[in-house]
Structures are given as C-alpha cells and as structure tokens.
Design a protein around this nucleic acid. Structure first.
Lengths: 169, 169
DNA sequence: CTTTCTATAGTCCAAAATAGACGGTTAAAG
DNA sequence: CTTTAACCGTCTATTTTGGACTATAGAAAG
C-alpha cells in the first residue's frame, strides 16, 4: 500500500485542501490555492498535478479517474492521509518566518532605496487594499484558520507599506 | 568565453558578496552569508560551491586555485560580473515579499492558534532581540544597504511578536 | 612525536521545486 | 459551422533542498 515518501509542506497543502473538500481535481486545487493560501505560500501549478499522484501512490489519497471525455483525476483523502495531516497540524513549530524579498536583497547589495520604494510602495498598498477588501467582503464567513492568516497578511502588509513609505522620503 | 546561463537570486548573492571582498573561497562566502543575509534569505551551503563554478564558467567570475595543500578555489568578480550585478541592482522590482511561514500554514489548516503562539512568540522575541543587539553593536558601522535590511528585519519581527502575542491570549 | 579532538572545508546524491513552454478540450458566441 | 476564450493537463530542463559523507589542518593531550 504505502511506499515511504517524505511529506513536505506541499504535501500538507494538498492534504489540507482535500480534507476540506472530499474530492477535487488538480485543477480544483489550483483554483483553491489561487484564492486562499496562494497569497502567502506560492507554489507552481505543476506541483498540484504531481504531488497528488505521489500522495496517492503512498496511500494518503485515493484516485478516481473519469471514464470518458477528459479522464480527469479526482482525488480524495484516505484515513491515512487524515492521520498524517492531524499529526502535522498538532505539532506546533518554532520555525521562523522565512522572508524572501527581492527588493530587500537588491537593497542589501546597494540598490537605491528611494527608487525601489517608489515601485514597492504602490505594490504593497495594492496588496493591502486587496486583503482589506477581502476581509470586508468575506471576513466574517471565513473559518478560523484562514481568518487568522488573513489578519497576519494584513498586519504584515501594513508594516511594509510603512517601511517603504519611510524610504520614499 | 561566456556560455549563456540564467542568473538567479543565488547568482546575484554570490556576485554581490564578491563585489565587496575582491576574493573569497566558497567557505568564506558561507561565513559571510551566515552573518548577514542568511537572516533573511536562506540558502544551502552546497550552492555556494556549485554556483561560483557556474558563474565562473560563464565568465562572471574568475577562479584561482591554490597549488598545494587543500587546493582551495578562490573566486573574484570580473568586469562582466560587475556589469551584470549593476544591471540587476539598478532595476527596481515590484515583486512582493514572499512569506513562508510554516506556523501560519498549519494554522490555516486548523492548528490551534494558542498552542502555536506559545512556541512562536518566544522564538520571534529571541530573533527580535538578536537583531536589536546587532543594531546596538554594529548598527552604525553598517553600510547603507545592510543597515536598511536590518531595520526591515526588526520592523517585521516586531509585527510578529505583536501578532503572536495577540493569539497567546 | 603520535594520537585524538575540533574546527575548517569541500563533495555528493537523490528528491523536490521552479520556470515556463506546450498541447489538448469544451463550450459559447457569432 | 467556425472562431475564440476559458478550461485543463503534461513535459523538460534546470535549480534548489536536505543531509550524509569525507577530508584536512592545527591544537591539545598523552
């Protein structure tokens, strides 16, 4: 049944999304990612095709393939998958936020802060506005987890707006 | 002389560090990363051995190999390397911060926020303290770029301390 | 001196992730 | 019917990760 595979964050993203939906195609997953955690954890769409396959081979998911037409693959989570997800989720992590900011990297190596701020400030303002709009529109309806991450996103964008403002002079 | 290679952030990190030092071995680079941008842009030490080789093959670096003993490789940046770095640095980017936060990911999928906060809060407090200490000790001596990124690190850690505090109840 | 310990320094491999090109299918509009 | 747009999926090359593994140099201990 299950060969040994390493479960990565990508794996848990797939498991987590499938726990909430009972069944989904990679394309469905792609859509879900796009509107939710894609905002704070980027991943390649190709991975949403290969990862479920890997997970299915290891027994964490079950695959059902359409007979006719597109022969889409539909995945659902197994008991084993649920268990793995539960274990992972239950284990708090002390790992720190990893920040990958190209603009900051350039500045570290001597880019002009003011010029950079002129480009970064509007970008972050837009992002902040998007999040706040999201909160206004669907905030109340969100499950606790996504609600909290949305707040985190807003808090962090606020900081960046402030930060780049200070450099914009 | 230079075959075509794709220059990634890793490439510019190597070029940027070498611009500041004239000459360094991969091990030196590793040390530099550890004390500076390693804080906000993680990379694998093995890359600091393979990347310079790649860059040298493409003409962006020059390699000098020790004759005796360890036969260490010493790299220095070429005019071509400097030009590439200058171009990259001069081009402001609108790309947003990419946030990879395992704790947030777990919470998104239903982990207990309070439990998580108990682990995350002290971790971020420690990190914030480290940065502030760094600023107190060497802050004034830092070049502009690293100084700004340090400020960014501090601002961002402050937010996280605040954020996790609010969840710790 | 020779062993042994520690910090230094480098290499390697398998697996996973990325970038992005490319190719098909379905449905709807004209 | 045909065109177009939205939908859906696969592929390859390259880069990155994680982490095991090896080796050298110098200092300290016997």
């Amino acid at each position: 049944m299950s060969s040994e595979i390493r479960l990565t964050p990508t794996s848990y993203i797939v498991l987590g999304l499938l726990e909430a939906t009972e069944e989904a195609t990679p394309y469905d997953l792609k859509q879900m990612v796009a509107v939710s955690l894609g905002n704070f954890w980027s991943l390649q769409h190709a991975q949403l095709y290969t990862e479920p396959e890997r997970l299915a081979a290891a027994g964490y998911l079950e695959e059902r393939r359409e007979e006719g037409g597109r022969r889409r693959r539909h995945y659902s989570i197994t008991a084993e998958g649920r268990a793995a997800l539960r274990d992972w989720r239950g284990e708090p992590t002390a790992e720190l936020t990893e920040l990958r900011d190209l603009a900051l990297l350039k500045i570290f190596f001597g880019a002009d802060p003011k010029e950079m701020a002129e480009v970064q400030l509007p970008a972050h303002e837009r992002q902040l506005a998007t999040y706040e709009e999201l909160r206004r529109d669907v905030g109340k309806a969100l499950p606790e987890g996504p609600g909290i991450t949305l707040e985190a996103g807003i808090a962090s964008e606020r900081i960046w707006v402030e930060f780049w403002s200070s450099l914009a002079g």
